[in-house]
């Protein structure tokens, strides 16, 4: 008896979460997460679903998953099957820019309709606490002296971490094509390699290393934001150390190609309303994401800049021929 009540409570809690909507909203949206359930983009999509319905911006939001190939499979589907569909959005981000080049995707982000940039996370370069490398200059000297000897641990090849390592080498005047970057599957493995002293430096989103940094097991060489992070005032930026390096791992939403200007405005307004709602602010806080809202037009310009930059780096590293 108790069990069945419990089960029902849990079940209704799950079922109701997406349904508490304000009565007046009429918008019905579909959000595609171009990743498997449980991943980062899926988390963004489901959080948006929650914020859009809870704040009353949309009447209903359905999340679907089209996983595979750094999101490019979902991208292809958005550009073909959803063409001209003004009620569908897709979550994407910085990583997709690289994945498109790497996977030689026939569809690019230029074919989508940018709607908004939502969040951004600064990356961080760390070394084990007992490492002789002290700061960005130290690391730069070593990379310049012998790039092979400086091993970098981070996420997948061609992802944000890899691009940062290459940008760092390029910025300090070393040969970016010679960096010794070792991709690990999942943050845990890269972190273990760092703590075990197997690699020289590690790259990841700040949040992933935060616990170890605060525990004193890892030392921050630099963060990639323009100013010091609010939650880590002791961690120096690269900029202040004279390395002109700024990389943000951002997440955004885009709409299919071929929608009307009016549809674009409706979607843009809805997402703007969501991004400024208190429900979204709560989610950002709970998930540890930084608000990086950019409206449709600004985001479009920003996106073009990122595409150029990433392509240049990937050519230098030899990931794209």
């Amino acid at each position: 008896m108790l069990t069945s009540i419990l089960k029902r409570t849990a079940v209704t809690a799950v079922a109701l979460a997406g349904l508490t909507t304000a009565a007046f909203a009429q918008l019905e949206l579909k959000i595609m997460a171009p990743a498997a359930p449980g991943g980062g983009w899926d988390g963004t999509a489901r959080s948006m679903q929650q914020a859009l319905t809870a704040s009353g911006v949309a009447k209903s939001v359905q999340v679907s998953n089209v996983p595979g190939a750094g999101g490019t499979i979902g991208l292809a589907q958005l550009a073909t099957s959803n063409k001209g569909d003004g009620s569908t959005l897709m979550v994407n981000g910085f990583v997709m820019v690289g994945a498109i080049l790497l996977n030689k995707s026939p569809v690019t982000l230029a074919q989508t309709t940018p709607i908004a940039r939502l969040t951004a996370e600064a990356l961080v370069v760390v070394v084990p606490a007992n490492s002789p490398v002290k700061d960005a200059k130290d690391l730069a000297d070593r990379v310049k002296a012998d790039p092979a000897k400086v091993t970098w641990a981070g996420g997948s090849a061609g992802g944000a971490d890899h691009i940062l390592a290459a940008l760092f080498a390029g910025t300090v005047g070393a040969d970016a094509s010679k960096i010794n970057y070792i991709p690990f599957s999942g943050g845990g493995e890269a972190l273990a390699a760092m703590l075990g002293g197997r690699v020289t430096a590690g790259v990841s989103g700040y949040g992933e290393f935060e616990g170890q940094i605060k525990a004193g097991k890892l030392r921050v060489i630099g963060v990639t934001s323009s100013a010091r992070l609010a939650n880590a005032p002791d961690a120096p930026t690269f900029k202040e150390q004279g390395v002109n390096l700024e990389v943000l791992n951002w997440r955004s939403v885009v709409a299919p190609p071929g929608i009307t200007a009016e549809q674009r405005k409706t979607l843009g307004d809805a997402i703007e309303k969501m991004a400024k709602s208190k429900e979204w602010a709560e989610i950002l806080k709970a998930r540890g994401w930084d608000d990086a809202y950019l409206g449709s037009a600004d985001f479009e310009t920003f996106l073009k800049g990122e595409e150029v930059r990433v392509e240049k780096v990937m050519r230098e590293v030899g990931l794209v021929k």
Binding site: V11, V14, A15, G18, P37, R46, Q62, V63, S64, N65
Partner: peptide, 13 residues
């Protein structure tokens, strides 16, 4: 039954 369980309880379509 399977479709409904997935859609309503697991929010998987």
């Amino acid at each position: 039954v399977i479709f409904l369980v997935f859609a309503k309880l697991l929010t998987l379509l």
